[in-house]
Design a protein around this nucleic acid. Sequence first.
DNA 1: AAATTTACCGCAATCGTTTGCGTAAATGGT
DNA 2: ACCATTTACGCAAACGATTGCGGTAAATTT
Lengths: 330, 330
Amino acid sequence: MTNTTLKLLAQQLQLSISTVSRALKDHPDISTATKEKVHALANSLDYEPNAYAIQLRTQSSKIFGVIVPAIANLFYDSFIAAIEEESRKNGYALMILQSSNNTENELNNLKIFRQNRVSGVFACLSAHTQNLEVYEKMSDRDIPVVFFDIVPKENKYTKVRMADERCAIIAAENIIQRGAKRVLALFGDPALSISQKRKQAFQQFMEKYAPKTHCTYLHTNSSEEAQLAFDKHLSKTQRLDTVFAMTDEILIGVMKSIQAHNIKVPKEIGVISISNGFIPSLYHPNISYVETSGFELGKLAFVQMLANIKGGKTLSELTVDARFVEGGSM
Amino acid sequence: MTNTTLKLLAQQLQLSISTVSRALKDHPDISTATKEKVHALANSLDYEPNAYAIQLRTQSSKIFGVIVPAIANLFYDSFIAAIEEESRKNGYALMILQSSNNTENELNNLKIFRQNRVSGVFACLSAHTQNLEVYEKMSDRDIPVVFFDIVPKENKYTKVRMADERCAIIAAENIIQRGAKRVLALFGDPALSISQKRKQAFQQFMEKYAPKTHCTYLHTNSSEEAQLAFDKHLSKTQRLDTVFAMTDEILIGVMKSIQAHNIKVPKEIGVISISNGFIPSLYHPNISYVETSGFELGKLAFVQMLANIKGGKTLSELTVDARFVEGGSM
DNA sequence: AAATTTACCGCAATCGTTTGCGTAAATGGT
DNA sequence: ACCATTTACGCAAACGATTGCGGTAAATTT
């Protein structure tokens, strides 16, 4: 079945294409009578403007691009859910691509975005992306980029992220408040700046405000590693009374070990993590955590994007604050 | 900065637009020398074809639309990840919209897809969508639709889904094999056909092959409900030896209760569920489950989509088979 | 009754690509 | 040296919508 176009409507109504176009968008030049006729026919023929023709003409696409390392990830999910919601409200659609933490994919995805002339890009850097030239290229094309979560260091970019240091400090505060004597703190990939930041903030805080507390710091790259590390540490140390997990991944490993050894939480060990809340809610008692809400981050990113589109450039780094959520694990 | 177009290239090279266009796509009419010149300039000027102009001309967009109830969902995530992967390999991009299980959103999303002239739509029906007219409209526009997971009953649609009955039966088989005497089987929203199917298949199988086994069937709509239901059932029943959870949500509730009562798995109770595998891997021992892989489903859906696009219509219902994954909970 | 305004509407160019068709020059065959 | 092919390229018409610039009839003013 052939699509209904302005031309078709015009022919059937014995009007010019321009008149039909104007009638459809309620242009004052067109008489009410004509408008009604046009609308009537357009409805009955199910007219839907060709988005590509519009974009070609107007050079604006009403589509945002999103790059995440992985879609199947609780944190990014909630982030995406947030911008999807906002986008829909504002008449935008989303094009989502995953980089799989692979720089090459990231480049390809950006290319697709450029070819589709997206109105803007939400980007989370791949773990080891160093070269930001491509993002410069986006700016050259006047496509605003809002970085989120894993963001570049330079100030010239617009970025939103979690208050990583604050997260770590809030966790440390609660650990101190618990009166912990021997704590095991598990962090993620040491190559990632997020791991570094969190560890540094955590360690500094502990050393300053609880110098007597004995802390062990370890880095692990997966749930399995975390489980092993926890296991090992458990067997060779006496009286480990608190464990801190920097991510959900790590928490999962720790909890498996805790379950396996049938260790009582919080009586025998206190557990605290940084999370968006889903994983901590899976256990009994619920694990206490410092909340990093992908959803909030998404909302914030969207605000930044709109500002960028409307008001030209707004270079700044915004962070969404963290808060402690009491489970029963401390 | 002004985008480089064919026209620009043509001017700089003193060639016609058509020649440049053909050179870029390696048309045999163009001499090697010219091709090289064109490519060189195109590269140095970072030429990128305008996807909208192409689509306008060729009437094909290289974009697939995806509608899911929620992005933040482990099952749909893996489904999306699969079609994203395949799409990229085949030069397509994805436009993902969520319906939030809301029929109105679903309609709007489809409208966006139509306006963007997507090449095809992967759709998961909202829980209570009855009216499929809109999907007819897509077909009228020659936009193929592949339904997945929650699919319409009519045969005229192309659909892929999990082998729901098989899942339930495999679970039942393993429960019987375990020599269960008293089992609690928890299912989801009774209004959903998926719940009905699974329960019916499960119940029939149990009654036929293990008539002496005492089974209790309950429906719950959330983790919390599942937890409560399990709690209650536990307190008033003696010797409950096996529990079956139809979904991850239900499993989560059950496991919280099990942890709270410090019940030993599998010694005191056997646990089995239907899942894509993530949640079951969170516990120790890992929960045994019947695998429903969103990833596999995605792959299958994509194959169907391609067949649909290339070979005209292929109306059929395909299911991806289920398999039992041994954890340590039975 | 002439002049001016107002209300409606059409013309045509434009966005960037693709492609059928036409044609000049180069090449080949005899 | 003459005709028949090839080779290599350009012209121009789409695709569907937007919009500045006019244009004409009717309505209003003087």
